[in-house]
Write a protein that binds this DNA or RNA. Structure first.
Lengths: 124, 124
DNA sequence: ATATAATATTCCCATATTGGAATATGTCAA
DNA sequence: TTGACATATTCCAATATGGGAATATTATAT
């Protein structure tokens, strides 16, 4: 089996740094393709291809204006990613606290027994 | 050029649903490989391979315990993803508000002119 | 109808993937 | 040392990628 297509979901679509860059640009406002190409310094087909992926997963919308296609951000699918990462928030939120706790535990040992366990901080 | 390797960053590592599942399991506590394989119903080499990717991007840690390797979650790298998606939070937070606003604008037009313009807001 | 501008699509290449099967490595016990 | 358990690695197939170059499509103006 191969890797899941980038058009499968927003997790895969957004794994590509250039597509994140593209979304960042569109967060400033809607834009036609050539504008984007010039702003980012990419060539036009590459822009169209990346926009195609983003379109398939619903991260952008298109509006036809004459011969231009105006692309705009539709960030809703990012909500799923945000929510998924949120379920792990507690693991990095209290990281510093836990480090502090360990340091304090070592301090207590120093005060009680007068020596420092391996890898620990010295006494005050 | 090919797609970026899954071991490049957490964005790529986490694009695979099975790896998200694995992280979810590890969020309940550290576990040896065979335990994971049994819990998820995967075969052992697959578990080792996915753990290898997660290890390379720093999403898990290993501890050797006899012939077992106990893997544990290290969610810190997910913070970057969380923060990136947060950048777009305002776009989905006020989405319902904006839909409501458009609906109200149409209602106002109906009251004023007695008809509804196609799909959008007309003159004031 | 024709030329031109704006965008999308196709073809190609080098590379990486996931899963399965088989095998290798490492660690303990007797 | 030998055997058994726990885990990692290798080899394979099918598939998908992203970039470049060339080309096709679509829409406008004359």
């Amino acid at each position: 089996m191969a890797r899941a297509p980038t058009t499968l979901d927003s997790f895969n679509a957004v794994a590509e740094p250039r597509r994140r860059q593209l979304l960042g640009l569109l967060s400033e406002g809607e834009r036609p393709v050539n504008d984007i190409a010039e702003s980012l310094g990419w060539n036009q087909p590459q822009v169209s291809k990346h926009l195609g992926v983003l379109l398939e997963v619903g991260l952008v919308k298109v509006r036809h204006a004459g011969r231009q296609r105006i692309y705009s951000l539709d960030a809703a699918p990012l909500k799923e990613i945000h929510q998924w990462t949120s379920t792990f928030e507690r693991f990095w939120e209290h990281q510093l606290d836990r480090i502090k706790e360990r340091a304090e535990a070592r301090q207590a040992l120093v005060r009680n027994r007068g020596n420092v366990p391996p890898g620990g901080a010295g006494e005050s």
